[in-house]
Design a protein around this nucleic acid. Structure first.
Lengths: 163, 163
DNA sequence: TGAATTTGGTCTCATATTAGACTTTTTTAT
DNA sequence: ATAAAAAAGTCTAATATGAGACCAAATTCA
């Protein structure tokens, strides 16, 4: 039988017998991954959380608009708007009004933005590696497969307001 | 071959080719689980995020202190202190100075606290079920097993400041 | 002992985040 | 065409949060 949270007393003290075991555990692990890394980046580079995430997103999807970013990231548009204004002031991104719809502003990284990203991404990578170090290669593949499935399914329930 | 995020163009647009794929996906899924639920609970019950989480933790581990909660939850002590004060004012928890160390305050749910918890936990449960609906029973067991392993391993890296 | 350090918890001030109102542009319906 | 509705983004005022100073109780160790 595979050990799980109900076997190990130390772990049980942390994870306990919540009524949302999976969500709780995901939250627990992610918190310890994300909070310290983000705090360090905030401090060292003077960025806010949405700023960090926007740079991250632009790195693989340049030319998106603020509201597209809101949609797939779940961030609130006020926060994103502020972050975008600040990022432009800092010359880390460039805004270009969409010629086909002048309400929309397409967002692009500048060279400085790309350079800043390159300075903080290694921290996040190292911490991800540390988080996953306890899993074998096969287990990581398994985990990634499950996460892909969960991620693909998000649109089916994320917006359902009764939940 | 199992489909994954690099195959589906729609998903790729969301998850992209980040350099922290696992962490990014966990964050993506968890965001959509947690943010809307917590926002709803905040609004409906007039609780703040740390207040919600403290009630959740006390439900399976009564008698812990604020700093123990900080340790295993990763929350900051200032926020927890504030939340504890407010929760006591609202008569949702009770504080009892530890007779063996009068700096420490043991925290307990009151009946009202238990009742409030009982009103909001179903929302979180329903949303967790929706999130996991795309996985088979076997896959959920797999996921929980991997999460238990990750959670058990957290103490090994969470505090390492070089990361 | 008793001085120095550590620990649990609170407080303060500066900053970040929220909900929701508002402006402008585009789309839809008539 | 034109009025109504929707959408993108910004702004504002209230609230929440974060880093770190602070106090009091407990522990260490000379």
């Amino acid at each position: 039988m595979r050990p799980n949270s109900s076997d190990d007393p130390g772990l049980r003290a942390i994870l306990g017998g919540t009524e949302i075991p999976t969500a709780y555990k995901i939250g627990y692990v992610l918190n310890f991954y994300r909070e310290p890394s983000f705090r360090a980046i905030e401090m060292e580079f003077g960025l806010t959380r949405p700023e960090i995430v926007i740079l991250l997103a632009l790195h693989f999807r340049e030319g998106i608009t603020a509201s597209e970013f809101c949609e797939f990231s779940g961030h609130l548009k006020a926060g994103v708007s502020r972050a975008v204004i600040v990022l432009e002031k800092k010359a880390l991104i460039r805004r270009q009004t969409d010629p086909r719809d002048s309400r929309r502003q397409l967002l692009f990284l500048t060279e400085a933005g790309r350079a800043l990203y390159a300075r903080y991404i290694p921290v996040l990578q190292a911490r991800e590696a540390a988080m996953l170090a306890c899993l074998s290669a096969a287990e990581r593949r398994q985990l990634d497969g499950l996460l892909d499935k969960l991620a693909a399914h998000v649109p089916a329930w994320a917006g359902v307001s009764e939940l």
